[in-house]
Computed example of a mutant assay.
Amino acid sequence: MTARDVLGPATSQLRRLARTPVPEPDRGRRAQHTCELCSEPLPDEHRHLLDLTSRQLCCACRACSLLFDREATGTGRYRAVPRLRKRLPADPLDDVTWAALEVPVRLAFFVPHSGDAGDGSDTGDVSVTAYYPSPLGVVGTAVDEEAWARVNPDVAERLEPDVTALLVRRDAGEHWLVGIDECYRLTARVRHTWTGMTGGDEVWHEIDRFFAELRGAPAPT
């Protein structure tokens, strides 16, 4: 899978997930979220499913998300995005590996993509794409296989294809294993707070807030 295959669905998904995080005070009352499979009303905190045919995320109730949990079923159109926020104690990317990955920014997430199209066919191939937030949404580029092979294998093997990511904030030395919905929330925040050519102070404040939430720390003020 190339970046072109996922940019369109990922960008449209940002618009939906932009309403899921903590809203701005003046945004007003949000419409009630409902499960996109069964229409059950959803709380603000809810699971997501990845539609393997369209590569879009769907909001799901607990019952529907459990139906498509990978441990329960490894086949089908939908795959549950795990609730995953795990900070890695050590840097899985040394400077040589980071240079080989050729990512042009210091904030990025890496997603392994399977050959599963959700229709019963699976090529068995796994490719990795590096994504990074931008004022236009998510931007992606294919990762060279030899470069990805340099990544700490213990970390790479823990990534569940399509639904988990290695999230890297290089300048702060933070590396996380997260569900892909966390990455899209981060990208939505960047997109909606970016100003000017470099993003402005507000976008970096919002990035600080996001990582504070991952750590369970009080958000910066």
Rank of each mutant, 00 (worst) to 15 (best):
R19E: 14
T20H: 01
T20E: 11
T20A: 09
T20S: 04
P21Q: 02
V22S: 05
P23H: 02
E24W: 13
E24Y: 04
P25M: 15
D26H: 12
R27T: 12
R27K: 07
G28M: 08
G28T: 03
G28H: 06
G28E: 05
G28K: 03
R30V: 03
R30F: 03
R30M: 04
R30Y: 02
Q32A: 14
H33W: 12
C35R: 11
C35Y: 07
E36T: 11
L37D: 05
C38E: 10
S39C: 13
E40K: 15
E40W: 12
P41R: 04
P41D: 06
L42S: 03
L42M: 08
L42W: 04
P43M: 03
D44M: 01
D44Q: 03
D44E: 06
E45V: 13
H46E: 02
H46A: 02
H48K: 01
H48Y: 05
L49T: 08
L49F: 04
L50T: 10
D51G: 00
D51L: 04
D51Y: 00
D51M: 08
D51A: 03
T53D: 02
S54V: 09
Q56W: 03
Q56V: 06
Q56L: 11
L57A: 07
L57V: 06
C58G: 06
C59M: 14
C59W: 02
C59I: 05
A60T: 05
C61T: 10
C61A: 09
C61W: 05
C61H: 01
R62E: 08
R62W: 08
C64L: 11
C64K: 06
L66S: 12
L66P: 01
L66T: 10
F68G: 08
D69M: 03
D69V: 02
R70L: 09
R70S: 10
R70V: 10
E71T: 12
E71M: 09
A72Q: 15
A72D: 11
A72N: 14
G74L: 15
T75F: 02
G76S: 11
Y78L: 13
R79H: 03
P82D: 06
